[in-house]
Design a protein around this nucleic acid. Sequence first.
DNA 1: ATCCTACATTGGACTCTGTCTAAGTCAAGA
DNA 2: TCTTGACTTAGACAGAGTCCAATGTAGGAT
Lengths: 138, 138
Amino acid sequence: MSDLLERLRGRGWRLTAQRRVVAEVLDGDHVHYTADEVHAKAADLLPEISRATVYNTLGELVSLGEVLEVCTDGRAKRYDPNAHHAHQHLVCSRCGTIRDVHPAGDLVANLPAEERFGFQVSAVDVTFRGICPDCAAA
Amino acid sequence: MSDLLERLRGRGWRLTAQRRVVAEVLDGDHVHYTADEVHAKAADLLPEISRATVYNTLGELVSLGEVLEVCTDGRAKRYDPNAHHAHQHLVCSRCGTIRDVHPAGDLVANLPAEERFGFQVSAVDVTFRGICPDCAAA
DNA sequence: ATCCTACATTGGACTCTGTCTAAGTCAAGA
DNA sequence: TCTTGACTTAGACAGAGTCCAATGTAGGAT
């Protein structure tokens, strides 16, 4: 993630403390924070950061293809920094925990031509749902 | 859909004009209205119906497994009355049109055991994305 | 047929997410 | 170091959804 900032600077991004902090919060695997969670964690590092800036920065990272938006439950969107490795999501129906997963095969190919209604199909989002080990034990 | 009301009455549902109207609005194939769209259409048939009742009724239909909630874009949830026929969704990235589709094969089986993190996986939601014929032509 | 009462409905206030704007601030090139 | 346009800020606003107290009514009991 540290070279993310360099990459973005190469694309004309002005490098501010706020953007640095947001990028830092999003670093890691299986990270899927909501915008407000990102804001809370960013504010631990940079107390004056505003909600608007977090939303702006997340939106820019999404436009630039560095971060994915995921929406697994109809509530707040979550931001997934793992955009450069194609993956899908596995969600616990009870506690909402999200894991990145890698299904086998070509998922788009699962949709037969006669089920495409003339669409040019270019992507597929998959959400596997189940109960995580912690919730199953409880 | 007409026997839906009878089925629900058998489960102790009180049959009110409001619930009848909501069920009527949701009748049909490839129906994926937002709660506010359901409210608008219901209000054409029963002008006094309130938003709260529409939300309550939709929530009950979802709990009873008669209607599915689908969330394809992080905006308003949509309600899909086709809950008794397993299916997935194909969404136009430009105009948002949604079609019900039926992918081939067992989609849950695409997730290898070593990618399940100990979850008991029970369901999978798939959203195919692409450009619909109308948007491609325009 | 009417009465009762628990269940349903209503409108409005409220919460949560997210967007917008006008004014102030600052990164980085000159 | 100066300048300037891009960035940040606080707060107002908007959209989606929930909650609540007051009112209405479906349908079983009489």
